[in-house]
Design a protein around this nucleic acid. Structure first.
Lengths: 334, 334
DNA sequence: CTGAAAGCGCTTACAG
DNA sequence: CTGAAAGCGCTTACAG
């Protein structure tokens, strides 16, 4: 069964396809199509269930009404929640989302951008990987709306929306210090992105400001993509060999691994040992005791991302580049 | 900066666009284009960074290489994990995924299917809502590849992949009984989909088989979409007013709410009270004590879904409808 | 008030 | 071995 085309509708209504097109696109009044014709055509469209072919429309107009979303991993709850919020807001404005996960792999990310390009997506929302600078710059030079989020690329001038990672991590350490902790460890990843670096810098600076020594042995950089079992074992080692009395986990999945490690070695969170996790996770609230976390304001991030995108999409002229830094919130749970 | 078209490449190479098209599509040999021309054209394509416009290609061929994924909520970890696995496998075969969340809303789901239709997606992967029967039947009549997953629609004959919800729930109750539980409650949703009904039936049948009375007061049907606070308060009521000694939660998010409720009323899981949750969640493993769960084999489900889709996409003829029921696994954690 | 025609960028049957 | 031309289903400038 072949789908109906505008031609079929025009034939049934005994008008030209031009007229049908005007009516479909709400230009009937503007083009002064008579009320009678409008009604007739609309009735036929309604009855036949005709839906314009978006592919043809896209080829003609150059717009697809599709936004490309490129994240590290859609199954990570931070990204899937953002994806959901963005989807919601985009759909209300007639945009659909096509997504992809980079797995932190430059080659894959580049390939994805190329695919999205050849599919002519109208705009890009990207949680970038280092190494993507030129590709992103090309998009921007092409006048494509691009919003980076979560992590920024220092060497590219692009719109960016993200939490204040430095101060979030600084505050966490501050909290540890106020609770009398002195041997504070950081468990982070070896991924070389600004947002991770900033969390590290916040940690370092806070130690310095509070007169605590910085000890390299207290910083564990977990290899991205390594087995969770390996991660757990490294964390166990950090915690048992050293006199660590507090740990900041730089991502939620690291904290999850960390909690598993604690459970295995039977180390209790309490009077002489504290933990703070970056990014929330249901497990943290449920954990006994509750795990304090640094929360990125998801709703606000998604809202800002989509607002910037839609603004750019709506504007004929190039808008100034914006960096929106949103404070993260430290939630104390014990 | 206008993107290059096949015409530009043809001009640069001094050949027709037909020739360029054959080369791009790997039909050069078949069409016996000379080696010299192939090399020349490929070099120009390479140097210029030309990428064929997929929109034009889609309009011409009728294929988009896009698969539409319709789920209840992409931010639910069950769906986001499936989304990730499907994405992976689809990309390897040249397909992209466009997703959408129905929020269990029939009207929204219908709208989504229509959008996907007019966007000419090549295939549909749908976790359906009741009420979508005709829409899905229409797709099937249109010879579009359609795979339902997670939940089936009894009144539509479509490919389906899902876990054996009945037996999963039956086994859970069996486990409770073997541990001496006698007053077993079920916390489920009021969503009227087969997969939820089956979990309920499994619960009922197991009680019957083990000679335990079925008590309506022990079945709590939570309204989908209601506030979590409300859910928690209802669960608290169930647990405090009744002499319930075991609870099966029919979805992971209900179990999360349930655990919060337990924490609030300080009810311990242990010798005289058991819990099993449907669908895994990191929180369950970390919880003290660990929460037993019924796990759907995500990898296997995704694998089967994508295999069925690709088979259909590859096949010229209509393939027989298949229902693949995959056993769920009961993981005992305490 | 309405329509014929060009063109978006491809693919492919047909011709030579 | 290669190319001219039709056509996928739309939109829109132009003409009347």
């Amino acid at each position: 069964m072949k789908a109906l085309s505008i031609k079929d509708i025009a034939q049934k209504a005994n008008v030209s396809i031009t007229t049908v097109s005007f009516i479909i696109n709400g230009k009937a009044k503007e083009k002064s199509i008579s009320e009678a014709v409008i009604e007739k055509v609309e009735k036929i469209i309604e009855e036949s269930g005709y839906k314009p072919n978006q592919i043809a429309r896209s080829l003609r107009t150059g717009n697809t009404n599709i936004i490309g979303l490129i994240v590290e991993d859609i199954s990570n709850s931070f990204f899937s929640k953002i994806a959901r919020l963005i989807e919601d807001k985009a759909y209300k404005r007639g945009y659909k989302i096509i997504y992809s996960s980079t797995e932190n792999n430059i080659a894959k990310a580049q390939e994805l951008i190329n695919m999205f390009k050849s599919r002519k997506v109208d705009a890009y929302i990207i949680s970038p990987v280092k190494g993507l600078e030129t590709d992103i710059q090309d998009l921007i030079n092409d006048e494509k709306p691009v919003i980076l989020f979560d992590r920024n690329l220092p060497d590219v001038v692009a719109n960016y929306v993200g939490a204040n990672h430095f101060s979030a991590s600084y505050q966490s350490i501050e909290n540890f210090v106020q609770n009398g902790r002195k041997n504070i460890a950081l468990v982070t990843t070896n991924v070389d992105v600004l947002q991770i670096t900033e969390r590290y810098e916040g940690y370092k600076k806070a130690l310095l400001d509070y007169g605590l020594p910085y000890n390299e042995d207290f910083v564990l950089k977990i290899h991205f993509n390594q087995d969770e079992a390996e991660t757990i074992s490294q964390i166990k080692q950090l915690l048992s060999a050293k006199k660590v009395d507090a740990v900041l986990f730089a991502t939620n999945y690291l904290a999850i691994s960390g909690l598993k490690a604690l459970k295995q070695i039977n180390k209790q969170i309490g009077d002489d040992f504290s933990v703070i996790a970056y990014d929330d996770h249901e497990a943290f609230e449920l954990h006994t005791p509750g795990i304090s976390t640094v929360q990125q304001p998801l709703e606000e991030i998604a809202e800002t991302v989509i607002k910037l995108i839609l603004n750019q999409l709506a504007s004929k002229t190039k808008l100034p580049i914006q960096e929106v830094i949103i404070p993260a919130k430290l939630i104390i749970r014990n």
